[in-house]
Design a protein around this nucleic acid. Structure first.
Length: 289
DNA sequence: CACTTGACCTGTCCGC
DNA sequence: TGCGGACAGGTCAAGT
C-alpha cells in the first residue's frame, strides 16, 4: 500500500492532532507486530511526526522514537476522545465496517493518548511493524541507512538521478525506481505512473536513458508525487488516511490498474500489464519508448 | 552485481 | 455454490 503520498498524507493528518499529547497506554493485541517494550514510551510526549521514505516516526521525549511501517495493508487511524465536540467522528465511508467499531480483528496495536484520543494500528496482512528504537540509534538502522534522497526535497536533483541511473546501468528502470536506496518512497503505483508521465518504457535499462529522458523522468517523479499528494494518495483497497478517508488518485491514474483501457495520452495504445521483478507493471506500448 | 524466488499473512476475485 | 489458483500497495533473505 502506502507509498510516499499515502504515508505523507497520514503523517500530516497525525501531526496536527497528536503532537503535544502523551502516550497514556499501549494495548498490544498481536505481539509480533510490536517490537520493543511499550513501557519505554508510555508516559512520554509526542514531540513530532516524521516520515523517512515510507517509514513513519513518532518523536518522543525520554530518548526513544516509535517507528511504524505499514507495508502493504497497514492503517494508522486516529479517533478523537469519545466526548470530543471539536472533531467529526470519522472521515466517512460508513458502508465499510472495517473502519468502524475499532478495535476490530485486524487491529493489532491501540495507543491511548493523554487527551483521550486513540490511534489504532490495523493491518490485514500483518506485514507491518511498530518498533521502539532509541533515538540515538535511529540513523543507524539498516533500513534508514539505505534510504536514498527524498524525491520532493532539495537533495534529489537532476544530476543525482542521472548519475544514479548510470551507476546501475544494467538494472531495469522500473526496478531502479522501486529500490529505496535510489529514491525513498516510490512504490509500484507511482513508479508506473512516473514512467508513463516520462514516456519511458518500464523495461528499459537504466543505463540506456539519455540525459533528456533522465530529466523527463525527474520531472515526472516530482509531478506524479505532487499530484498524488493533492489527491490524498491512492486507495486500491485498504489505504485510508489518519481519519479514515480514502485517497482518490486512482481516478486520474494513467496506467496503474488500467489494463485494457485506452491510453489517455495517445488514444492509440491500450494499456498493457506485464511482470517486472515480480511486480505487476502497467504501461502504454505506443507512446512510451 | 543483478535478478529470481520465497517468505511473511489474509482476503478477494476469477475461471471452471 | 464450491474449489483452486492468481493476485495484492513492501521488504528481506537466500539462491543462481
Amino acid at each position: 500500500m502506502p507509498e510516499l503520498p499515502e504515508v505523507e498524507t497520514i503523517r500530516r493528518g497525525l501531526e496536527n492532532r497528536v503532537v503535544g499529547a502523551t502516550i497514556a497506554s499501549i494495548d498490544v493485541r498481536a505481539p509480533k507486530i510490536f517490537e520493543g517494550k511499550p513501557e519505554d514510551v508510555i508516559g512520554h510526549e509526542i514531540t513530532g511526526v516524521e516520515r523517512h521514505g515510507k517509514l513513519l516516526v513518532f518523536l518522543l521525549t525520554g530518548g526513544n522514537v516509535l517507528t511504524v511501517h505499514l507495508k502493504m495493508t497497514g492503517q494508522l487511524i486516529w479517533q478523537p476522545a469519545a466526548d470530543s465536540q471539536a472533531e467529526p467522528v470519522m472521515g466517512g465511508h460508513p458502508e465499510e465496517s472495517y473502519l468502524h467499531n475499532l478495535p476490530h480483528k485486524h487491529t493489532h496495536v491501540v495507543l491511548k493518548l493523554s487527551d483521550g484520543s486513540t490511534i489504532f494500528f490495523n493491518d490485514l496482512r500483518k506485514f507491518g511493524r511498530m518498533s521502539v528504537v532509541p533515538a540515538s540509534n535511529f540513523n543507524d538502522l539498516a533500513f534508514v541507512q539505505k534510504l536514498g534522497p527524498e524525491p520532493l526535497e532539495a537533495d534529489f536533483t537532476r544530476k543525482y538521478l542521472q548519475e544514479q541511473l548510470q551507476k546501475r546501468p544494467r538494472t531495469v528502470v522500473k526496478s531502479f525506481l522501486l529500490d529505496q536506496a535510489n529514491i525513498a518512497g516510490l512504490g509500484n503505483i507511482y513508479a508506473d505512473e512516473s514512467l508513463f508521465r516520462a514516456a519511458i518504457l518500464p523495461n528499459r535499462l537504466s543505463g540506456s536513458l539519455t540525459t533528456g529522458e533522465s530529466n523527463n523522468l525527474f520531472d515526472a517523479i516530482q509531478e506524479t508525487l505532487e499530484l498524488a499528494l493533492m489527491y490524498g494518495g491512492s486507495s486500491e483497497k485498504d489505504y485510508v488516511n489518519a481519519i479514515g478517508d480514502k485517497g482518490t488518485y486512482l481516478k486520474i491514474a494513467n496506467v496503474y490498474h488500467r489494463t485494457g483501457k485506452d491510453c489517455n495520452r495517445c488514444n492509440a495504445g491500450v494499456i498493457e500489464r506485464i511482470k517486472i521483478g515480480g511486480r505487476s507493471t502497467h504501461f502504454c506500448p505506443i507512446c512510451q519508448h
